[in-house]
Simulated scan of single mutants.
Amino acid sequence: MRALAVLTLAAAAIPLNAQFGMPPKPKSDPVKGDLAAIKCGVCQGLAEHLYEKVAEMREAAPFGKVHEDDISTVIEGACDPATKEGRWITEYDIVEEGGYLELKKQDSFSHCKEECETIAKSCTVLVDDELDVEEVVVALWKNKLGLSELQKAACGEWSDRCSGKKRVKAPKDRQDYEFEPKTAKDFEVAEAMERLQNSMGGMGGPGIYGPDDLAAMDAMMSQMGDMGQDPFADDFDMGGMGGMEF
């Protein structure tokens, strides 16, 4: 019931930040100093994600046939951690080992903070400026390359991310950021938002909300319940909520 209530408030398309004076939570910035040192790892991680994703699509498709346009769609969203196609990015933690930076896959997804945004930035540059996306699409569609072969081609032939050049060391005195796993409730809110955006995003309202907005709405619902207010009552007045604190 609570999830339905939160979605209903979101669907009302009332700008939450403007209504309650809540400043938008700032998005974390990529760590520019790490970008050069993670280039190879990001390319290999992207290739692994695309290989596994297309394999799943092939298993689910009639007669195992996957359309090239569907593969293109996967690649288009693969570098955006806010989408299901780009969620793989939030599984990785950037760690320093032996003076170099490694991408270590974790057992859970994380909140997308500085290191996640750094991986996303590197991935975006790779897809937009370095790879021939059509070449990648065709290779995945033909399904003649194994994972290691795809990684070698994408990162050593179609781009120079993992070529024989001298490996870049980690910046001196770099700051490491904690990997913050998502909770079950985090996933519930994120998936509810994604369903809402998919079904109503074209109407102009729900697309303005992010996971933090919906979490705030959930907190708002709790406070309203404690105050004996029903947001779905016919005589409910949104204007009476201006003094609520979040």
Rank of each mutant, 00 (worst) to 15 (best):
Leu145Tyr: 09
Ala78Glu: 11
Asn143Met: 05
Phe63Glu: 15
Trp158Tyr: 14
Leu126Cys: 03
Ala154Trp: 15
Val54Cys: 02
Ala61Thr: 14
Cys116Gly: 12
Glu91Asp: 07
Glu52Thr: 09
Phe109Ile: 14
Asp70Phe: 09
Glu68Asn: 12
Lys104Ile: 14
Val66Phe: 08
Ala153Cys: 04
His67Glu: 15
Glu68Asp: 03
Val54His: 06
Lys105Gln: 07
Ser110Thr: 06
Ala61Tyr: 13
Ser108Pro: 06
Phe109Asp: 12
Cys123Leu: 01
Glu134Gly: 08
Leu126Asn: 02
Cys155His: 05
Asp80Ala: 11
Ala139Ile: 05
Leu147Tyr: 02
Glu117Trp: 10
Pro62Trp: 00
Lys53Asn: 03
Leu140Pro: 15
Cys79Lys: 15
Asp70Pro: 02
Glu52Asp: 12
Lys113Tyr: 04
Lys113Thr: 02
Asp70Leu: 06
Lys105Pro: 03
Gly156Asp: 12
His49Tyr: 05
Asp129Arg: 00
Arg87Trp: 11
Leu126Phe: 04
Ser148Thr: 01
Trp141Gly: 11
Val95Pro: 04
Leu101Arg: 00
Leu101Asn: 07
Cys112Glu: 04
Asp70Gly: 02
Tyr92Met: 04
Ala55Pro: 08
Cys123Ile: 01
Gly86Asn: 14
Pro62Leu: 09
Asp80Lys: 13
Ile119Lys: 06
Glu56Gly: 12
Tyr100Asn: 01
Glu56Leu: 13
Glu56Tyr: 06
Leu103Gln: 10
Glu56Trp: 07
Glu115Pro: 00
Asp107Thr: 12
Thr90Pro: 02
Glu56Cys: 03
Leu147Glu: 03
Glu97Met: 13
Asp128Ser: 02
Asp132Asn: 04
Gly77Ser: 13
Glu91Ser: 07
Phe109Met: 14
Glu134Tyr: 06
His49Val: 02
Ala55Met: 07
Lys152Asp: 04
Lys65Ser: 08
Val66His: 10
Cys112Gln: 05
His49Leu: 05
Ala153Ile: 05
Leu145Glu: 11
Ile119Met: 10
His111Met: 04
Val125Trp: 08
Ser148Gly: 03
Ala78Gln: 13
Gly64Ala: 08
Leu50Glu: 03
Ile94Met: 01
Cys155Pro: 08
Ser72Met: 15
Leu140Ser: 12
Thr124Met: 06
Glu135Ser: 01
Leu147Lys: 07
Glu91Met: 09
Val125Ala: 13
Thr90Ile: 00
Cys79His: 15
Leu101Trp: 03
Gln106Ser: 11
Asp80Phe: 12
Val66Asp: 10
Glu97Trp: 02
Glu68Tyr: 10
Thr118Asn: 11
Lys152Glu: 05
Asp132Tyr: 02
Cys116Asn: 07
Cys79Val: 14
Ala78Pro: 10
Gln106Phe: 12
Cys116Tyr: 10
Glu134Val: 02
Asp132Glu: 01
Lys113Ile: 01
Glu91Gln: 13
Gly77Phe: 12
Glu157Thr: 15
Leu150Tyr: 07
Val74Pro: 00
Glu135Pro: 01
Glu130Val: 07
Glu96Gly: 00
Val133Lys: 14
Gly99Glu: 08
Pro81Gln: 11
Glu96Trp: 02
Asp107Lys: 10
Tyr92Gly: 01
Ala61Glu: 13
Thr118Pro: 10
Ile94Glu: 03
Ser110Gln: 00
Val125Thr: 14
Pro62Thr: 05
Lys121Ala: 11
Val137Ile: 14
Lys65Val: 11
Gly64Tyr: 03
Pro62Phe: 10
Ile71Pro: 04
